[in-house]
């Protein structure tokens, strides 16, 4: 008797454990909070500011998703993840979405069972060295000691680059960005390598930033973007189209400042559909009609977010480059909102 009760409980628990998947949207709504996997602190992309509020280019995308789903961009909890823990955190359900300079690769997409739903930053791997080292090209780094973050695609690119150019190096594998910067600044490595955007962000925080140069070689393609779990297509679509709505907003000139005005006066059918003034676009994804309007009004359109966090007016000073809209010669292109 007792044993059968035990076995019954066992079976029930196992089934519950088996079922707990899918339906991220429902989970987030029920929780009233979006849990976003973020960087442990990369200035410009995702880091807490002096008041402890998370700000940055990646953070703004999380806030836009929260605004679209929950109507409030502050209903987000940011969970710092390292290069090593990020995908495990996402796969195990600890975070709902991961926006943390993660490169879209074949094996991550297929072997890790994750979905990269968009590319919010087109990046490439570069090297930073001290100016007085007198190095002007990455190919001159023969025999150098290179600091590198573990668990990243850059680790593999680095090995490939040096092998392809038939030069040698000594890797120093460090856990996170701050330790890598400490070792680089202390001279424990000659060069620091990561995504060029990350290098610019790191340099911006250094006291003597004018003494460091980022070498011209970009040795890889690093499309960075938001990641969700494989299999929950609705949730993936929500994140993807929230991002696209930010792109379309920039294309159509909708900003944080003028969005109410545009909503009141516009006759552009695509804008009207996106802002929820006509059609039922939000409902198709299980969202409110004004979901994408909320997303855009949270921190502005893609261009505004870029300029505010990592653009040329900020200490990080990145040019739009590949991340300009397709109309301006860049790669950022959103499918029509129809």
């Amino acid at each position: 008797m007792k044993k059968s009760v035990f076995l019954g409980t066992l079976a029930a628990t196992t089934m519950i454990a088996g079922v707990a998947a899918a339906g991220t949207l429902d989970d987030v709504k029920a929780r009233g909070e979006l849990i976003c996997g973020s960087n442990t602190g990369l200035t410009g992309f995702g880091a807490p500011d002096a008041n402890g509020n998370w700000v940055g280019f990646d953070v703004a995308l999380c806030r836009a998703v929260a605004a679209a789903v929950l109507g409030d961009q502050n209903k987000v909890k940011f969970v710092p993840t390292t290069g090593e823990t990020r995908f495990t955190a996402l796969a195990s359900g600890e975070v709902d979405i991961l926006v943390r300079n993660s490169t879209w690769t074949y094996s991550r997409d297929n072997d890790l069972k994750l979905d990269f739903v968009a590319v919010n930053y087109y990046d490439g791997q570069g090297f930073m060295v001290k100016k007085d080292l007198g190095v002007s090209s990455a190919k001159e780094l023969d025999g150098a000691t290179v600091c590198i973050q573990t668990g990243t695609t850059t680790e593999l690119n680095l090995a490939d680059f040096f092998k392809f150019n038939n030069i040698s190096y000594t890797p120093v594998t460090v856990q996170d960005d701050s330790e890598a910067q400490r070792q680089y600044l202390a001279g424990a490595c000659d060069a620091y390598t990561t995504d060029a955007s990350g290098l610019a962000a790191a340099r911006a925080t250094m006291a003597d930033s004018e003494n460091h140069v980022i070498l011209p070689e970009i040795i890889s393609k690093e499309p960075l973007g938001p990641v969700v779990r494989h299999g929950d297509n609705q949730w993936g679509d929500i994140v993807r189209w929230t991002f696209f709505s930010l792109l379309i907003a920039e294309e159509k000139g909708i900003t944080k400042a003028n969005i109410e005005e545009v909503a009141a006066s516009t006759t552009d059918p695509e804008v009207r559909r996106m802002l929820g003034l006509e059609g039922n676009m939000g409902a198709m994804l299980g969202l409110d009609a004004g979901a994408f309007k909320n997303a855009i009004s949270a921190n502005g359109n893609y261009g505004e977010i870029f300029e505010a966090n990592i653009g040329s007016a900020t200490p990080i000073g990145l040019a739009r480059g590949l991340n300009a809209l397709w109309t301006q010669g860049g790669l950022q292109y959103a499918p029509p909102f129809r």
Partner: peptide, 8 residues
């Protein structure tokens, strides 16, 4: 560390 991370 690295193997776990690269292979998942």
């Amino acid at each position: 560390g690295i193997t776990l991370n690269q292979t998942g």
